[in-house]
Design a protein around this nucleic acid. Structure first.
Lengths: 107, 107
DNA sequence: CCTATATATAAGCATATTCTTATATTGTTG
DNA sequence: CAACAATATAAGAATATGCTTATATATAGG
């Protein structure tokens, strides 16, 4: 991997919202609507962030009906696992989503 | 470490010139003038890049006479070593500098 | 001191990034 | 098919980034 590609990967990682998304996807796959709920950001903003992560091959998508689930990818980055481990735990956010009955919008 | 700090760290890593500088410093400590020679960029541009790396605590500086040497730091980032290992080898650039008699400007 | 050398900082411009709002696309369902 | 729901894309504005040129600061040596 050359410097250009490595820089592009880190551009995708150089935003706190996208890091939160990765930390959330570490817990479990989520659809855009769930991310919108958790992050309390507009839907287009979230879509644009996941697109950048997808372009950087840090996440992959899987369409399921009218929903699109995102999950962690990044197999081609051997350093990524070590980094993901340092992300703050976001399980509380997922719990909150479930507590509010908003997990499983995408069903 | 929170998301802000982690994003800031990755902003520093999100530039191909700064990644090259880290790859070079992996080989050996270098002063600004040597980096200018290798990178073939203006001195202010290089200074500004190393400043960003320093602010992100990815490198540290050590003044020696009129020269300032930079070296790798980043102890506080547990994921950094794994990443540095994936950087393309730059030993050839150092060799070239020496071959041209320009290594040791800073002595 | 005075000058030269090495490095840092400042200001300004071009481009990139990240939102917002508006609209398009895709899939579901009656 | 029509109407709705989920997501994506586009255009535009505000801010950030990375260069340039010009200038400031710091150290060495006569």
């Amino acid at each position: 991997m050359n410097f250009y590609q490595l820089a592009d990967c880190h551009k995708a990682l150089a935003d706190k919202t996208r890091l939160r998304i990765l930390a959330l996807l570490k817990e479990e796959d989520l659809c855009v609507g769930e991310l919108v709920e958790i992050l309390k950001m507009s839907q287009p903003a979230v879509s644009q962030h996941v697109r950048k992560l997808k372009n950087a091959k840090l996440v992959k998508e899987r369409r399921q009906g009218q929903w699109v689930y995102y999950s962690l990818d990044g197999k081609e980055y051997p350093f990524l696992d070590a980094f993901l481990q340092t992300l703050p735990d976001q399980s509380g956010e997922i719990e909150r989503l479930k507590a509010e009955g908003k997990k499983g919008i995408c069903n």
